[in-house]
Design a protein around this nucleic acid. Structure first.
Length: 139
DNA sequence: ATTCTCACA
DNA sequence: TGTGAGTA
């Protein structure tokens, strides 16, 4: 049993039977939905807090037909990060900034990686790196 | 039974 | 941040 692989139950209690499903492993899919109640219990956080994080554009889950929040795994993970921050005194305004910064960092990391590849390619050809124009730098 | 929004302390 | 009213 892997407690790290939570399975969302249907809100109506219906259970999913993947025992005979030929194509099941859409594991990494970011579309496994949890109700706010499940997330609240899973992360040990009050439901109003989750709703506020939604309203504040920090973690914004999709809605079901009836307008109910449905959290994906990514969002649950994102929630973990946010709660880790807030539990350590970071304000919601601060969380916003941290989130922006993290995204910026990953963008820059991607750009650096791209630049590295380009540079390496030119060096191993004994050529000179190009001047300054590179496709990755487009703000 | 659960969740939703909104208002309030 | 948490609780209660009134819905869907």
């Amino acid at each position: 049993m892997d407690v790290r692989t939570p399975r969302p139950d249907r809100p109506d209690g219906t259970s999913e039977d993947d025992g005979g499903s030929p194509l099941a492993p859409l594991d990494d899919a970011s579309l496994s939905f949890y109700t706010i109640g499940q997330v609240a219990e899973l992360l040990d956080v009050a439901q109003p807090a989750l709703r506020r994080l939604d309203g504040l554009d920090i973690v914004r889950p999709d809605r079901s037909e009836g307008g109910q929040r449905r959290y994906s795994r990514e969002e649950v993970h994102r929630l973990r990060e946010v709660l880790d921050l807030t539990d350590n005194g970071v304000t919601l305004a601060g969380v916003r900034i941290v989130l922006e910064l993290r995204q910026r960092v990953s963008e820059l990391e991607a750009e650096v990686a791209q630049l590295r590849r380009t540079l390496a390619r030119h060096l191993e050809c004994g050529r000179q790196p190009p001047r300054s124009t590179d496709a990755t730098a487009q703000d």
